[in-house]
Design a protein around this nucleic acid. Sequence first.
DNA 1: CATGAATGAGCTTTCATTCAT
DNA 2: CATGAATGAAAGCTCATTCAT
Lengths: 228, 228, 228, 228
Amino acid sequence: MNDKTDLPGCPGELLRQGRRVAGQDPVKRDQILDGAHRVFTRLGFDASSMNDITREANVSKGTIYVYFANKEELFETLMERERQRIFSDSEMALTGQGTIAERLMRYGTLIVRLVCSDVVIRAHRVILGVGERMPEMAARFYERGPQKGKQALALFMKAEVEAGNLVIDDVEFAAHQFSDLCMAAIFRPRLFGYMANEPTTAEIERSVGGAVAMFMAYYAPRPGAGAA
Amino acid sequence: MNDKTDLPGCPGELLRQGRRVAGQDPVKRDQILDGAHRVFTRLGFDASSMNDITREANVSKGTIYVYFANKEELFETLMERERQRIFSDSEMALTGQGTIAERLMRYGTLIVRLVCSDVVIRAHRVILGVGERMPEMAARFYERGPQKGKQALALFMKAEVEAGNLVIDDVEFAAHQFSDLCMAAIFRPRLFGYMANEPTTAEIERSVGGAVAMFMAYYAPRPGAGAA
Amino acid sequence: MNDKTDLPGCPGELLRQGRRVAGQDPVKRDQILDGAHRVFTRLGFDASSMNDITREANVSKGTIYVYFANKEELFETLMERERQRIFSDSEMALTGQGTIAERLMRYGTLIVRLVCSDVVIRAHRVILGVGERMPEMAARFYERGPQKGKQALALFMKAEVEAGNLVIDDVEFAAHQFSDLCMAAIFRPRLFGYMANEPTTAEIERSVGGAVAMFMAYYAPRPGAGAA
Amino acid sequence: MNDKTDLPGCPGELLRQGRRVAGQDPVKRDQILDGAHRVFTRLGFDASSMNDITREANVSKGTIYVYFANKEELFETLMERERQRIFSDSEMALTGQGTIAERLMRYGTLIVRLVCSDVVIRAHRVILGVGERMPEMAARFYERGPQKGKQALALFMKAEVEAGNLVIDDVEFAAHQFSDLCMAAIFRPRLFGYMANEPTTAEIERSVGGAVAMFMAYYAPRPGAGAA
DNA sequence: CATGAATGAGCTTTCATTCAT
DNA sequence: CATGAATGAAAGCTCATTCAT
């Protein structure tokens, strides 16, 4: 997954050749992004001032503008980085040992813990908050984030269907169903802050357990019973 | 000095009797809220200026401040109004004729069409965008909006469980499951703008149909087969 | 002292003829001035809003503009009224029984108590605060207020000089000297708020007593000693 | 968010060491104060807008807010500076050669010329104009300004009393008396703008001369005559 | 390169004044 | 006449961005 070629923070090939980039310090760049992350997730895009970021990142104003053309580019770069961090290894859970149910359980547990974590929920809110004004960015976040995880899940399902272990007509749709079922009573309450704390392991287990049970009841062929 | 309503002899008790302030024009008030709605959903809270609203609502700056103490109060009032508008009659769908599946189908169709509509999705984004800074407002929106609908659904399920038509251990949880299943492949893509248009009737039917099928397969007792 | 002919609040002859004045209610007019007085002395001219006055006077905005053309005219009218109230009867103290010293004592006591009272000190501050922008008004306030009192005092002195009881070259100057001596340690501290409370009778007595003693020591001819 | 100095890495301790804020330009600071002085003394506190000051000081709006947190702080800083400038060396006049009368004459001349100068009278008006709303500031101005001068005078008198050259019971009171006597016919008319121009040398000489004469007549022991 | 002082457009909010009722 | 809702210019203040050092 070579996402790097169209990072918003690196607008075009010029950057990798011209003198602006020469000598840029990736450590300082990350330092800025780290500060920006704290500020943006706390205040949202508009309410965050470049001064806030400057203070939080412990760099000067001018320095930020060396690394990022403007506030929006800084924001987009940051969100790109966050997306990559968040959704980097969700598919891992599907590989490995165990029954289908066990592997689904592992996968569901991982994504619920991940997606409903404080940091990810906050990132969601920030992105959604500017979704109307930066539509491609929000769409891209979804496409390369959650959507990607579901594709991996769909591929897994497709393999199991072909192996005769599952009976699913539309695996992409089923992947969506399973994912959303896993966080059924969690994701939206978390997003709105109605559920203040990260879900406990017990809560996650129960939710994902319910999802797996329901999913298997419907999609796993039982002797003498068709599903879809 | 702090003189929002511009009423000199406004004795306080009168204010809280009928309309909010004696002599205020509810039509103009709604006119302001309508303008504010257009602006806020387009730009989000912070990026919307009072001037934008002034222009969109076709009232003067001062007039807005006669009806609303400040930008935040205007926003909160608006969001309250939107919430009430949106989630006023979702439970209707559950009453009326038909089998359980038919009624669930009706309910699911209604909430998906509603919650995933452009206007509601935009309202969600706006609220989520300020969720970090106005946490109670976002939480209240969820509690009195989506949460309420789910409670009605849970009550319906409880009745059917008691009638022996469904076998459900935790109806609240099951209500969440059903709701989220209904919009499985729709809500999140819509929220992020990945799915640009409102779902078609066909898409909704398919999604809700899948949810009903899965739900019934798991929670409706079949002769000789236990569920939970 | 027919001051009424050039009251700022009665701009010209038109008012006394045209329909604007016909039917104006002097009670309501005073009601407005009373409210304005409370507000202006509390906040100063600029920081007082017409709404504040409206609230304090318990009249509507429009009503104020029936009686006064604008904020400035209201202010000037008020200050004119206050001046007349304050400095109406200071000369009384000089007439009546008693030695020169006794009468000076009476006069001094009266003006110190008056001029250093809370209400007059506040009026002073308000007028001085706008003195740069409404110079004629402030000057007129002084001319027809304090200055007038001093003229009465000078006349008294002149009479006593002619009677051979005092030896004074320039009575106007001596009147100033006596007046300022009376409030020597009081007026300026009061004006700046350094002396928070109105002077007590004892303080006044002492201050005026000192003034009289000093004045008499210098200006009253003693056998075998010339003064000025 | 609240970011007056625009310094990101401004660690707090540095701020209170030398100049107020590391890197701030004292020349520009004075430039702002000079402009503010012109505007404030012309219009008073409330009627002076930050834009006026901006224009008069020839700096941008933002720059003012780098040096001063808000309008009030700018004003207070300015008044503090003016106070120090005005009342820095009034006591000098008392030291040096000459008889008591000569030294009093010198002192009186100096303070009258100073206190009744255009610039000081204007400063008085501005301060008094906000005295009701910033009482401590006005009181402090008096305490550290005029009051201080009088204390020096009182000390001088005390020394002369102890040397047997004067007979004064309460030197502080006498100092007030002498001071106010010096500007008897000048200070108040000036304050109200009734005396439009700064007093001439002749006027001052006469006024102070009268004060010295009166003061000495009362407080200087003459052979065979007691005073108080 | 890094810095942060300077800019000025633009923000939210206030208020003297008007005028339809 | 009295009322007070409406107006819109102007207030204090912020902040993304630039640029001399």
